[in-house]
C-alpha cells in the first residue's frame, strides 16, 4: 500500500486532485469558522450584488452571501456523496461476496435481482426510491446508494470468482478453513484493490446524481444550503445574476474533477484492468 501511495505522489494529476479535495473537505469541516456570515441571513438591500470584495461570489436574490452558502453546502453534498458510496459498498460487498463465494442457486438468485436493478437507469432507480421514501437529503443519499449497488455487486462477484480459483484459497480450504472465514480473511483482502478504485470513482457519480436529485426538487428544501438546490435557485436569475448558479456549479465540477483525477490515478496504479470503469 505504501508503494501505491508513493506512486500516487509521483503523479501530478493525483496530487492536484488530492489537494483540491483536501481543500474542499477542509472548508466543509471548518464551515462556519471560515465563513463568519450566516448562510441563511437575508439582506434585501444587497440582493443580486455581483461578485465583489465583500462578497467574492456575489449574493443571491435575497442578498445571501453565495460563498458562505457554497462552503456550507459542501457539507451536505459531500455527506450525500460519501454516504451513498458507503451504502453501495455495504450492499455490494454483502451481496457480491455471498454471490461469488456461495455460487449455486444463491448466486443465480442474487444475480437475477441485480439484472432487474440494472434494468433501471441509475437516476430512474433513485427516483423510484425517493418516490417510496419521500423527499429529503437522507432519502436522496439512500436512493443514490441503492442505485449504485448493482455496479458494486457485479464488480465484487466477478473478482471473487477469479480469486476463489487461486491455489492459496484452495490451500486455505484444504487446511479446514470454514467458508465464511476463507471468504472474509482470504478472498476479501485480495479483491480490495478494484473495490477501492470503484468506490473512489463512485463518489464522483454520487455527488452528481445527488446534486441532480436536489436540483429537481427531490432533496433538501430551500433555504437549506446545498449545491444542487442553490444551482436550481439561480436558474431564474441567469440574466440578472448568473453568479447565483455559477458558485455551486463550479464547486460541484471542481470537486468531481478532483475525485476523478484521484480515481483515475488510483485505477492506473492499483488495477489497470479497470480502465473501462470510467466509461460506465
Amino acid at each position: 500500500m505504501t508503494a501505491a501511495v508513493r506512486l500516487l505522489w509521483r503523479r501530478k494529476a493525483a496530487v492536484l486532485g488530492g489537494a483540491i479535495l483536501a481543500l474542499v473537505v477542509g472548508l466543509a469541516v471548518a464551515g462556519p469558522a471560515v465563513t463568519r456570515t450566516d448562510p441563511l441571513k437575508m439582506n434585501l438591500l444587497k440582493a443580486l450584488s455581483p461578485p465583489s470584495g465583500s462578497h467574492p461570489f456575489g449574493t443571491d436574490q435575497y442578498g445571501r452571501d453565495i460563498l458562505t452558502r457554497v462552503i456550507t453546502g459542501a457539507r451536505l453534498s459531500l455527506v450525500t456523496g460519501l454516504g451513498a458510496v458507503v451504502i453501495a459498498l455495504a450492499g455490494g460487498l454483502g451481496l457480491g461476496l455471498v454471490s461469488g463465494a456461495a455460487g449455486g442457486w444463491i448466486d443465480l438468485l442474487i444475480m437475477r435481482i441485480v439484472d432487474v436493478m440494472m434494468a433501471f437507469p441509475s437516476v430512474l432507480l433513485a427516483l423510484v426510491v425517493v418516490a417510496v421514501l419521500g423527499h429529503g437529503s437522507t432519502n436522496v443519499m439512500v436512493a443514490v446508494g441503492v442505485s449504485l449497488i448493482p455496479t458494486f455487486v457485479r464488480l465484487i462477484r466477478g473478482n471473487v470468482l477469479v480469486v476463489r480459483e487461486q491455489a492459496y484459497i484452495e490451500a486455505a480450504r484444504a487446511l479446514g478453513g470454514r467458508p465464511r472465514r476463507v471468504t472474509l480473511q482470504h478472498i476479501l483482502p485480495n479483491i480490495l484493490a478494484p473495490v477501492i478504485v470503484l468506490a473512489t470513482i463512485a463518489i464522483a457519480w454520487s455527488i452528481i446524481i445527488g446534486a441532480s436529485l436536489s436540483f429537481l426538487g427531490l432533496g433538501p428544501r430551500p433555504p437549506i444550503p446545498e449545491w444542487g438546490v442553490d444551482l436550481s435557485n439561480g436558474r431564474n436569475y441567469l440574466l440578472r445574476g448568473w453568479w447565483i448558479s455559477a458558485g455551486p456549479g463550479v464547486a460541484i465540477m471542481t470537486t468531481v474533477v478532483a475525485v476523478n483525477l484521484v480515481g483515475d490515478t488510483l485505477r492506473d496504479v492499483l488495477d489497470p484492468r479497470l480502465r473501462s470503469l470510467t466509461n460506465l
Binding site: L231, L239, M253, V256
Partner: peptide, 22 residues
C-alpha cells in the same frame, strides 16, 4: 473529455442557455 465526464448535465445546460440564448 475529463471535463465532460465531470460536468453535471444541469450545470452544462444552464451554461449553454446562458451563452447561446441569453
Amino acid at each position: 473529455a475529463l471535463g465532460g465526464i465531470s460536468m453535471p448535465s444541469f450545470w452544462l445546460g444552464l451554461l449553454l442557455i446562458f451563452a447561446f440564448s441569453l
